[in-house]
Design a protein around this nucleic acid. Sequence first.
RNA 1: GCGGGUGUAGCUCAGUUGGUUAGAGCGCCGGUUUGUGGUACCGGAGGUCGGGGGUUCAAGUCCCCUUACUCGCCCCA
Length: 415
Amino acid sequence: MKNNINLVKGTHDIYGAEMEKFEFIIESFYSVCKKFNFQSIQTPIIEQQELFSRAVGEQTDIVSKEMYSFLDKGEINICLRPEATSGLARFAASNYQSGLMKLVTHGPMFRRERPQKGRYRQFHQINIETIGEKSPYIDFEPILIAKLLLDKLGVSKNKYKLLINSLGSKDDQLSYSILLKKYLSDFKNQLSETSISRLDKNPLRILDSKDPEDTEILKNAPKIGEHLSNESKNYFDQVKKLLNSNEIEFYEEPKLVRGLDYYSHTTFEYQTIEHKRQNAILAGGRYDKLISMISSRDIPGIGWAAGVERLMDLITIEDEKSKSKNKILFAVQDETYLNNNRILKQIYNFKYNHEVRVNKNIKKLFSYADKNNFSFILLIGEEEINSNKIILKDLKNKSQQTFEISKFELKNEIR
RNA sequence: GCGGGUGUAGCUCAGUUGGUUAGAGCGCCGGUUUGUGGUACCGGAGGUCGGGGGUUCAAGUCCCCUUACUCGCCCCA
């Protein structure tokens, strides 16, 4: 006996009720976004590794330790995409012309982490990006769309909250980093190891630390909101005004910096309060310098990604939907009855789903239809084939009729 | 990379202080007078008890190692 082949660690099959949720999320996402004139796009799952080391950032966890990468035929460093925005930015860098490029996509992403609840090595994201222009409304729109999507998915308002922050321009970040570094250097021997290593490379990320001692120290640290340029501050105020006037409730979180280096100005995150861990269900922000980091063009953009598996955990779907679907079982007692069978063509052209089943035992055919929630059974058995008859039985009200095969029209009998 | 939990039939799990041929439910196959359904009853197939080593007269059960899954740390959607 051979051993079974297991799933690769951190991957999973999506099937049955789970798959219905998955499709429901993807379909809802596209239907909401298309009303805002977004265009769908699919970019490759494999990209040059350099795309992510430049866009996401060399020192981020994602790039430095979580990427699946390999040398393709000893020539180019290829990797499985750990996120989608970089690929879309690459696309925009060479295809953007003018005005707004509004893109939506979905697909698998790959990060080599230790799997746990709500975190997989292959997981799925839905992504929305608005590229080309910068204005408070353009920031507001995707945040609104996120809320509309959560509504459509039936995630109730008391299950999540929206956090927002502004990181200001890259210049703001630079001057704030100096302030923060100065403040933190007084506590250098109390900070956690990772925070110390970030002190020089990326001090902003220290704000994200969950180490209790770090958080204590950070309580009195300078706040980024208080050190933005007037221009950045005004911009952020206008975004908040739009949210307020459209009744989108949010909390300002000055420590929301995100783990990818490309963000600037508005950042946001929808968090579920159902789970304590892996609670970020949808997150994103503005990335004005991203495209200039990977190309010779300088185009602003904003977008977000949501984890499909994390959304699946939050929603419920009635499985009656699939059960109440009308299905026909075409049952025959012998495989040869299917030769030159005019019913076969009728049934696969008919509006209902169907299945063909062969079994000598009539009882088995009925029992199969019953267990699999068929609503009708079309039966040609030994008696029928000998007398050129066919039986149609409505399995719900148990009524049954016999017809001449040559005259039987499915569409006249089931409407 | 570091911790905790779990691993017994296709699936979900029992298996008592170590004690004879390892169990249940569901599913599958067959039967209950030969061609009509989720029920009931009867029967059947299916297990190297994750793998390796050790303790013991005796190990699914205790100990060690290993592996897979899972939950958490870190980080993220």
